[in-house]
């Protein structure tokens, strides 16, 4: 697709994104000097008028990631940005797939990116009590807490007939994407995962199946996901948060991309866990369920299948 203006001009884009970075030095100088000022609010106006940089604050618009993709790559069929942490990442893929299945779209670019080293975001998740403080541990070995990761992942989703007509090689089949929400009374996460799993695997077949989990380490969500995974005893599990950290919006599209790569190699990548949730698996790989349980809200699941 790269450089193919005709294809890119009818590619539908859904980006899942948060906001852009702030100039933390400007913020710190204001916070230091504002209380000492005779008129703190006038001081804030004055500093912002002189210190804000248009190039930086434009990037704080969530949709400017999509805007830059349009400019750099020429993707212009449509452009939508979903906001809302992990759930936005799930719904971006779900809606892109639904549009293709319904004939509203033939070709889509979907995904996002995340910078995990922003002080303003680290403190926000810490305010919610969701961060792991040192030392580092894999997701399933933690009592509680996320480790943020910097990562980006985009998927090209395409109607099979459209892909075959242009001789593009299908890498995997995205069979289904589901999402749910609740205010998360105790047990709601496990129940949602159970419901979605039953929808994705109606006949209960688990041979050649693995789970790539987006577990964050935040609680109680991760404990509920761990309890649900125990009910799938023989299905191998991998939590990518243990290896690359948690990237919020794009974690789900990244995990679908990793599932696709594993299916293409017919081999699951090794475990990173000594708690017993993840175990060695050398068997065949035909289908991968990708989970996404948001650190605060939102539950999702995708089924990715090897192309036959």
């Amino acid at each position: 697709m790269k450089g193919n203006a005709e294809l890119l001009a009818r590619t539908d884009m859904i980006v899942a994104a948060g906001g852009g970075e702030r100039d933390v030095a400007v913020d710190a100088a204001i916070l230091t000097n504002k209380p000492k000022s005779a008129n703190p609010e006038a001081f804030l106006n004055e500093r912002l008028m002189s210190d804000l940089r248009p190039t930086l604050f434009l990037a704080q618009l969530s949709n400017l990631l999509a805007g830059n993709i349009s400019i750099v790559h020429g993707v212009t069929g449509s452009s939508r940005t979903f906001m809302g942490e992990e759930a936005a990442g799930v719904d971006a893929v779900r809606v892109a797939l639904a549009r293709i299945e319904a004939g509203q779209s033939e070709l889509a670019l979907v995904g996002g990116s995340h910078n995990g080293e922003r002080e303003d975001l680290l403190l926000l998740y810490d305010a919610g009590g969701h961060m792991l403080h040192a030392p580092f541990q894999p997701v399933w070995e933690r009592r509680s807490g996320m480790v943020l990761g910097s990562l980006g992942a985009f998927l090209v989703l395409e109607a099979r007939g459209h892909a075959e007509a242009r001789n593009a090689k299908p890498l995997a089949r995205l069979a289904r994407v589901l999402s749910e929400r609740s205010a998360r009374p105790p047990g709601a996460v496990s129940a949602a995962l159970t419901r979605m799993w039953q929808t994705l695997t109606p006949h209960g077949a688990r041979a050649g199946m693995a789970v790539i989990s987006g577990a964050t380490g935040a609680q109680p969500a991760t404990n509920e996901e761990r309890a649900w995974l125990k009910s799938l005893a023989e299905v191998p599990v991998r939590a990518t948060g243990s290896r690359v950290g948690h990237g919020l919006e794009p974690q789900f599209s990244m995990n679908i991309a990793l599932a696709t790569l594993a299916l293409g190699r017919e081999k699951l990548f090794p475990p990173a866990d000594s708690s017993g949730v993840e175990r060695e698996y050398e068997g065949p790989l035909e289908r991968v369920a990708v989970t996404a349980v948001g650190h605060w809200r939102g539950e999702g699941m995708a089924l990715v299948e090897a192309v036959t």
Binding site: G18, G19, S62, M83, G84, E85, A87, A88, L123, L124, Y125, D126, A127, G128, G129, H130, M131, H133, G294, W296, R297, G298
Partner: peptide
């Protein structure tokens, strides 16, 4: 200050969702 647990409401208010 945020890690003190006294500002949980800021986390929820500032989630995009």
């Amino acid at each position: 200050a945020s890690a003190s647990g006294r500002f949980r409401a800021i986390h929820e208010r500032c989630q995009f969702a």
